[in-house]
Simulated scan of single mutants.
Amino acid sequence: MKKNRYLLCLLLSGLLLYYAVPRISMFSPGAEGVFAYAWLGFALIVIAGNLTGLLYTPKPQGKQQLKGNRARKRIKSRYYN
Rank of each mutant, 00 (worst) to 15 (best):
Q61T: 13
Q61H: 07
A43F: 06
P58T: 08
I47P: 00
I45E: 03
L54D: 04
T57Y: 01
I45A: 13
I47F: 08
N50V: 01
K67S: 03
R70Q: 07
L40A: 03
L55A: 10
G49K: 06
Q61L: 13
L66N: 07
K67P: 00
G53A: 04
Y56R: 12
G68H: 01
L66A: 11
T52A: 08
F42K: 02
K59N: 03
A43V: 04
L51N: 01
L44V: 12
A48H: 02
P58I: 06
A43I: 07
G49V: 10
L54K: 06
L54R: 06
P60E: 13
K67H: 01
T57L: 09
A71P: 00
V46Y: 00
L44T: 04
F42N: 07
G62P: 00
L44E: 01
Q65L: 14
Q64W: 08
G41T: 15
G49Q: 07
G53S: 03
R70Y: 06
I45W: 08
L54C: 10
P60Y: 10
L55K: 07
G49Y: 06
G62T: 15
L51R: 03
V46M: 08
K59W: 08
G68Y: 03
T57H: 03
Q61E: 14
T52Y: 15
N69Q: 15
F42W: 03
L66M: 15
L44Y: 10
G62L: 01
L51C: 06
P58M: 02
R70L: 09
R70C: 01
Q61A: 13
N69T: 11
T57C: 01
G53K: 07
L66C: 03
T57E: 14
N50D: 14
P58H: 04
L66P: 02
K63S: 13
K63Y: 07
R70V: 09
L55V: 03
G68M: 14
L51F: 11
I45Y: 11
G68S: 11
Y56P: 00
G41C: 11
G49M: 09
L40S: 05
Q61K: 12
P60A: 14
G49P: 00
I47Q: 10
G41W: 09
I45M: 10
T52E: 02
Q61P: 01
T52F: 14
L54I: 08
Q65A: 15
Y56Q: 08
Q64R: 12
A43E: 09
L51W: 05
Q64L: 13
A43D: 06
G49C: 09
T52L: 10
A48G: 09
G49L: 10
Y56V: 06
G41I: 07
Q64Y: 06
Q61N: 08
G41N: 13
I47T: 14
Y56W: 14
Y56F: 15
K63G: 08
N50M: 15
Y56G: 02
G68E: 14
F42A: 13
G62I: 02
L54P: 06
I47H: 05
N69K: 14
I47Y: 05
F42S: 10
N69P: 00
A43N: 05
I47S: 06
Q61C: 05
Y56S: 07
V46D: 05
K59L: 08
F42H: 02
G41Q: 10
I45R: 02
L40F: 01
G68W: 04
P58F: 03
L44K: 04
R70I: 07
G68L: 10
Q65V: 12
L66D: 02
L40M: 13
Y56L: 12
G68I: 10
